Computed example of a mutant assay.
Amino acid sequence: MQVAIDGVTYVSHETPAWRGESHFMAMVNLAPFDLEGMLEQLWLRELNEGDSYEVCCIPFYAYGLALGDVVGKTDVVDRLIRNSGRRVLRVLFAEPRPREDSRSALQEAVESAGLLSEWNGDRHVAIDVPEISVMQPIFDSVQGEIQDRTAFWEWSDSKEFRTA
Score class of each variant (00 low, 15 high):
Ser158Cys: 03
Met135Glu: 06
Val91Cys: 14
Phe161Cys: 05
Ala31Asn: 04
Ala113His: 06
Asp140Phe: 01
Ala4Asp: 14
Ile132Arg: 14
Asp148Ile: 00
Gly37Asp: 07
Asp78Thr: 04
Glu160Gln: 11
Met27Asn: 05
Met38Glu: 13
Val129Cys: 12
Ser112Leu: 12
Cys56Glu: 08
Val91Tyr: 02
Val77Asp: 05
Ala105Cys: 08
Asp75Tyr: 06
Glu111Ser: 13
Gln143Tyr: 07
Phe24Tyr: 13
Tyr63Glu: 02
Ala66Cys: 09
Asp148Lys: 13
Val55Trp: 05
Glu49Ser: 13
Gly20Leu: 12
Val71Glu: 01
Asp148Val: 00
Gln136Met: 08
Glu160Asp: 12
Gly68Arg: 02
Pro137Gly: 10
Cys56Lys: 08
Ser84Ala: 07
Ser84Gly: 01
Asp157Pro: 08
Phe33Arg: 04
Met25Thr: 14
Phe152Thr: 12
Gln147Thr: 07
Gly20Cys: 07
Leu35Thr: 02
Leu92Glu: 10
Thr15Asp: 12
Glu40Trp: 00
His13Glu: 09
Val8Tyr: 03
Glu118Arg: 08
Leu106His: 05
Glu36Thr: 05
Arg162Ser: 10
Phe152Arg: 10
Val76Ala: 06
His124Ser: 01
Asp140Gly: 01
Pro59Leu: 00
Trp18Leu: 15
Ile58Asp: 00
Arg99Gly: 14
Ile5Gln: 13
Ala109Cys: 11
Leu80Cys: 05
Thr9Trp: 03
Gly50Arg: 08
Asp157Thr: 06
Glu40Tyr: 00
Ile81Pro: 01
Pro137Met: 11
Pro96Met: 15
Tyr53Asn: 06
Leu106Ser: 04
Gln147Pro: 00
Ile81Tyr: 02
Met1Pro: 13
Ser141Ile: 01
Asn120Ala: 05
Cys56Asp: 08
Asp140Thr: 07
Ile81Arg: 14
Gly121Asp: 06
Phe60Pro: 00
Gln147His: 03
Leu89Gly: 07
Gly72Tyr: 02
Pro32Ile: 03
Met27Phe: 07
Tyr61Leu: 08
Gly7Thr: 10
Ala31Thr: 12
Glu111Ala: 14
Val55Asp: 04
Ser156Ala: 15
Ser104Ile: 13
Ala31Cys: 01
Met38Lys: 13
Phe161Ile: 07
Glu131Trp: 04
Met135Lys: 07
Thr74Leu: 06
Ser84His: 01
Pro96His: 10
Ser141Trp: 01
Met1Phe: 09
Asp78Met: 06
Pro32Tyr: 01
Glu95Tyr: 14
Leu116Ala: 10
Asp75Ala: 09
Ser133Ala: 15
Ile146Glu: 06
Arg86Lys: 11
Ala164Tyr: 10
Phe33His: 10
Leu65Thr: 01
Leu92Asn: 11
Pro59His: 02
Gly7Arg: 10
Arg87Glu: 10
Val70Tyr: 01
Asn48Cys: 04
Glu14Trp: 03
Val142Lys: 03
